[in-house]
């Protein structure tokens, strides 16, 4: 082998270990899942014994009312939860972006909910929502109101899981937005102050646009996470009453363990993966477009 070709090979040689790890850790499981979604596979069988059924699992899913309903619940849950969390998280960050004594202590306190294990969060809220001994209904009753059927009525149960998720994950958005705010260039904000911008104008025209790249990544992370939330809802309602809180990951879990249809569960996971991929690509393309637009503007300025 000539020295030149060896030289050309060198970079690939160095890349090879990473490539191998990637192939085994990422592509193998995904391919396995995709293959499994074409099988009629019951957990008592080995994968080799399972029957190949082509796209039957997918067709079955599209005709399944319960799956469609659960997809709907998931989309609704993700949209509602992420919207509320973004408003609250960014709002809190804007309010607390100042020099307060003991800010680091406050910050740690704020992110506590995120650090609690999801099963515990689920249990905690389930007891707080308890119809007779829970803190909410006890308080309401002591004020002379009627108790609310937090977890026993379909719409209230949905609201209840949204509240719990907002409680747990708003701090995540808060902490990232705060970091973004504190790293904004002081010069731009000072310039706007000199130009006489009010606080609102500073927020809308200076701070939010400059924070946007971080906010988009945050939004994406939360969106992906909210599609996959499982434990909190599992513990709080187990998908009930009826199917009102049965999000997709719960349905996947039940399909695999309760209905013993591994193939169908794999097909559902693939559909969830596709939805998440579409979301990620949309964000990615949006970011690219933004960059391109900025570059074009810069070019126009330079020409002028």
């Amino acid at each position: 082998m000539s020295i030149a070709s060896t030289n050309r090979m060198t970079p690939y040689l160095f890349l090879a270990p990473a490539g191998l790890v990637l192939a085994f850790a990422l592509f193998y499981p995904i391919c396995y899942m995709i293959y499994a979604s074409f099988l009629d596979w019951n957990p008592s069988q080995r994968i080799g014994e399972a029957e190949f059924v082509g796209l039957r699992n997918y067709f079955k899913l599209f005709g399944d009312d319960a799956f469609r309903e659960s997809m709907g619940v998931t989309l609704k849950f993700a949209a509602v939860v992420v919207t509320i969390e973004m408003f609250l998280g960014v709002g809190l960050a804007l309010l607390l972006d100042r020099n307060i004594r003991g800010m680091s202590v406050l910050r740690t306190l704020f992110i506590l909910p995120m650090m609690i294990a999801p099963i515990v969060v689920g249990l905690m809220w389930r007891y707080m929502y308890h119809p007779t001994v829970g803190i909410f209904n006890k308080t309401l009753k002591s004020w002379g109101f009627d108790g609310i059927p937090w977890l026993s009525d379909g719409s209230w149960a949905f609201a209840s899981v949204v509240i719990a998720d907002v409680w747990q994950w708003t701090p995540f958005i808060f902490i990232l937005s705060l970091a973004a705010l504190q790293s904004l260039p002081a010069s731009a904000i000072e310039a706007s102050k000199i130009d006489g911008a009010s606080d609102w104008q500073q927020i809308i025209y200076i701070k939010l646009p400059l924070m946007l790249p971080v906010l988009i990544v945050t939004l994406l992370l939360r969106l992906i996470d909210s599609f996959k939330v499982l434990e909190v809802i599992l513990v709080m309602t187990n998908g009930g009453p009826g199917l009102s809180t049965e999000i997709l990951s719960l349905r996947i879990n039940r399909t695999a363990s309760e209905f013993r249809e591994l193939g169908e569960a794999a097909a559902m996971s693939n559909l969830l993966l596709i939805v998440l991929l579409i979301l990620t690509f949309t964000m990615f393309i949006y970011n690219k477009a933004q960059d391109a637009r900025a570059a074009r503007l810069r070019a126009v300025e330079e020409e002028a």
Binding site: G154, G240, G242, E261
Partner: peptide
């Protein structure tokens, strides 16, 4: 039975709550 049992259960829950 797993599939049918779950269906009975969610439907019965709708009878009870909705």
């Amino acid at each position: 039975w797993g599939t049918i049992n779950a269906d009975i259960g969610t439907t019965m829950s709708q009878v009870l709550t909705e």
